[in-house]
Amino acid sequence: MSKAILYDSTLCIGCKACEGGCAERWGLPYNDKIAAEETISAHKLTAVETHGERYSRRLCMNCQQPACASVCPVGALQKTALGPVVYDADKCMGCRYCMQACPFQVPTYEWDKRLPKMRKCDMCSDRQIKGKQTACAEACPVGATVCGERDELLTEARKRIAEKPGGYYNKVYGVQEVGGTSVLYLSAVPFEQIGLRTNVPMEALPETTWRVLELVPDVVSTGTVMLGGIWWITNRRAEVAKKEGRRK
């Protein structure tokens, strides 16, 4: 069973309590100036955005098949069975391929540090292991962010839409996007109006590169035989030509 977060933007009052809870859990500074920033960065792993009178939250989607984990050359990023996509800073070499590959532009970098790390939300992996909620869900005073089993949250989300069809856009974001994510969104309006990306592929991204990578053994084996064969043929020919030339 894997954990997930359900964020219902129709319930969100923009109080930013989730931001505070997140900062505390990571031991990051949090004050009015930081609260006013509406983008995620290395010192702010979740951000509440204002879209007119609506709100939306940005955080790592903890994808079901994360692009970031598939591209990391050293395996510093891993999708855990529990749900969170976790990061091992001791492995990270700072190539920033995860940042390039993430379809949601989530990973951020400590650009100004001499020994920088990548930074992103990991759905409070350590807390969830202990059976606790994520810090943001715990902090949310109105239940706009809740945390639980993905299946159950999905059922809950669909129930909310069914009960109040006029109040919701008839879709749950995160069901199919990039093959499914562990953060699900509900909204009153089409998702792009609250800043969510609707141009992301509906297939899991790691597939795109794996289709090519899985050919590597074929290329190597066929290539070896072919190149070896060509070498053998051409040099043999040269050899014969030389010998015949000598005999003449």
């Binding site: 591209v71 990270c92 070499m93 190539c95 790390k117 990548m118 794996w210």
Partner: peptide, 24 residues
């Protein structure tokens, strides 16, 4: 370019065969 150039060698011991960059 690497954020941690001292870890240039990491891909040689920490493997992720699903990564194109690992292969490169």
């Amino acid at each position: 370019d690497l954020g941690r150039p001292d870890r240039l060698w990491h891909p040689l011991v920490m493997w992720n065969p699903h990564s194109v960059m690992f292969e490169v």
